[in-house]
Nucleic acid binder design. Sequence first.
RNA 1: GUGGGUAUAGCGUAGUUGGUUAACGCGUCAGUUUGUGGCACUGAAGACCGUGGGUUCGAAUCCCACUAUCCACCCCA
Length: 444
Amino acid sequence: MAAITQRPKGTQDVVPSEVYKWYTVEQIASETARQFGFKEIRVPTFEDTGLFVRSVGDTTDVVQKEMYTVSATGDSTFTLRPEGTAGTIRALIENGVLNEGFPQKVFYILSCFRHEKPQAGRLREFHQFGCEMAGAANARADADVIALAKSVLDRLGLKGIELNINSIGCPECRSQYHKALKEYFEGYKDSLCETCQGRLEKNPMRILDCKSQEDKQIAENAPLILDYLCDDCKEHFEQLQNNLRLMGIDYKINARIVRGLDYYTRTVFEFITTDIGAQGTVCGGGRYDGLIEQLGGKPTPALGFGMGLERLILTMESQGCDFKKPEKCGIYIASMGQKGESKAVELVGKLREEGFFAEYDLVGRGLKAQMKYADKIGASFVVVLGDNEIDSGEAKLKNMRTGEQTDIKLDDSFVDSFSGIFFSDMLSDENFRNMISSIAKDGE
RNA sequence: GUGGGUAUAGCGUAGUUGGUUAACGCGUCAGUUUGUGGCACUGAAGACCGUGGGUUCGAAUCCCACUAUCCACCCCA
């Protein structure tokens, strides 16, 4: 296959027959966010490279080797966002949104870009649903944000997704901890695997998460961050847990979760599934109290999370979750002959004006083929228009589910008559009734 | 960047001691007489068997290289 007809490595096409899965996730995520008081924000796909270097951190993998940086004509370089938080916070500062009172709560659905080697659940262009909250220092805010993420996962129908939480403290307690950790691992330096020997300098906390059997054993007795938290951080973490308990949200303290972006402080969390391979973090986030100040805003506590839409969909597929089915054609108008074709165009136009999903033949199929097509696209009703119908001004409206046929006039009353039959059929449909009653139950 | 797997029609696959027109299912299109779908039957279109070399009288089938893709490490959503 020629390169020009091939999508770039690590990107994905969503074909028409699959988009409904995306609609489902996007709709549930944004509706849930709005219900929690978050408003949508839309920001550019690319930002000044420096923004990511300063926020994500210049020692992180994301900045060091995964950024898509493009130079425009002139001297500035831009980078396709590798994550959503930096640009969002930048926008909140730049537009003065943080002066409009606290807390500020925003959400977004956008694509991110990282130059990584693709594998299951990891793409170079991927999509994130993210939420950010600024101006709330209280641990209740942490719990609230986690509750929002949890709600989204629940409403998508996902099961067995484990919430892992941890506190990585503030910069003060973390540097204490780093020191202790380094001292500990120095003692085992020669036994550590190669990558971990490198981590010793760069980020000793990562050694805790190593998969190597030997390193795991060494790490078992390593000092824990939770023992090094200052009083305030410790209290914050306690409060978070109290709130989670109040909300009935199960969690696991996992001292090994360490986020790979530098801006995190105190609370970090991940929702993890084992259903989609090695890249099982379906949602990751935490608090970043220093970021806003670091980017030039007034010191303002903040926190947020990102969810990978591809990973959500993968998990839903693997768990057999329900996606909202795409809407199907309400009425297909088949036609034969010039007069019938003209009438079909006219009626479909009127039906669409009234909001109906209506279609007619566009490729010149025979009657039988039109019927097959109507069946294939799942049309609820079909009308056949030929010379006989045009002359008599009356046609048969066929219910494709029951096979039942009803006479219908082709004059101005057509749309109203159809409307009546269409909705009464919906009410008599068992699936529809079940749907309505389950919605009513949810609302109780 | 480091490993391992795979590459046959739109999709899913068969095709292993190398041998004439590469098979099947789904899908697509058309028909099965008279103006009405779902089932069944018939037929058609659609593949330079990832690319390039090599071995051989002869390769989808063996060898090499390349490319793509998948999975894992790493990292993260």
